[in-house]
């Protein structure tokens, strides 16, 4: 996988070879705390994610999974504790450097897709290029974007706008956008939460392929056992802290808050025939 460009002194770069311990971990979070008013959501959460790992973070609804993902991805800076990404302390990075890190090294996939409705699928995929420190030239960027769409089997929907796409197609466009700069880390927040079973399964398979074939590091926040099942390691977030877990933890949780896949409506956000 080609290395994304990184030029400025403050810009994030992959860990140096001289620091093998740091090189082994893409994410190192220690004692992360985050509160919203009086509600403490994260109470000393710590975790480490190795390069090339496919990790699932599970937990009950409202347990702080998405909050932790936002902190780890540099989307939320109002935390206490230490978060190191590619060997860089996030708190020490300027807004510009952190933005560049998100732009070139991290891809995000969200439950509600977060596509811009006034742009076509291709234009949505091209968005990261507008904010890159060294954007690709027009033709190269378009070629890269089409390539990304082709990887998620949407080459023929490049000109369609999000309202014209099904849920699965939208999520695949979001994935193509996340993969535009061939990031090293993909952070996914309930990526199949709005999809029907079949479409969700295809997305999960795509994640597994990206991890196995391209060595992409994936952190999946989910409360779906079948998503957690593809992960090599499962962590559970409980009482604001990260503890070891397994996909079966979710089965236990389902008894109180989750419906099994089989019970979910098959018609929700399904692909068109």
């Amino acid at each position: 996988m080609p290395e994304p460009s990184s030029s400025s002194a403050e810009s994030p770069s992959p860990p140096s070879v001289a620091d093998p311990a740091a090189a082994a971990f893409v994410i190192v979070a220690s004692d992360v705390r985050r509160s919203f008013g009086r509600d403490a959501v994260l109470c000393g959460a710590s975790l480490q994610v190795k390069q090339g790992e496919l990790l699932a973070l599970v937990g009950r609804s409202g347990s702080g999974k998405s909050t932790l993902l936002s902190v780890l991805g540099g989307l939320d800076r109002d935390y206490q504790g230490q978060v190191t990404l590619f060997g860089k302390d996030l708190a020490a990075l300027s807004d510009a450097a952190l933005s560049q890190l998100r732009n070139e090294h991290i891809g995000f996939v969200f439950q509600s897709f977060h596509l811009l409705d006034h742009l076509s699928a291709l234009e949505n995929v091209l968005l990261p290029n507008a904010f890159a420190a060294s954007p690709l030239a027009h033709a190269a960027a378009h070629e890269r974007a089409r390539e990304a769409l082709a990887r998620v089997d949407l080459a023929d929907r490049a000109t369609a706008r999000p309202p014209e796409l099904s849920g699965g197609q939208k999520q695949r466009v979001a994935l193509a956008r996340a993969l535009f700069f061939r990031p090293q880390l993909l952070l996914c927040d309930e990526p199949t939460g709005n999809l029907d079973v079949t479409t969700g399964q295809r997305i999960i398979e795509l994640f597994a392929t990206l991890n196995q074939r391209e060595g992409l590091t994936l952190l999946l926040v989910t409360h779906e056992p079948r998503v957690a099942a593809v992960a090599r390691r499962v962590l559970r977030i409980d009482a604001g802290q990260v503890v070891s877990g397994s996909a079966t933890d979710l089965v236990t949780d389902q008894s109180t808050e989750l419906a099994p896949d089989s019970a979910r409506p098959a018609h929700r956000q399904e692909d068109p025939p």
């Binding site: 807004d95 933005s99 560049q100 995000f108 977060h114 811009l116 904010f131």
Partner: peptide, 16 residues
């Protein structure tokens, strides 16, 4: 608001 969040997520800085 949501769109601005998306732009920030894909790499837009405050200056952008």
């Amino acid at each position: 608001r949501h769109e601005l969040g998306v732009l920030r997520a894909v790499g837009a800085s405050r200056a952008d």
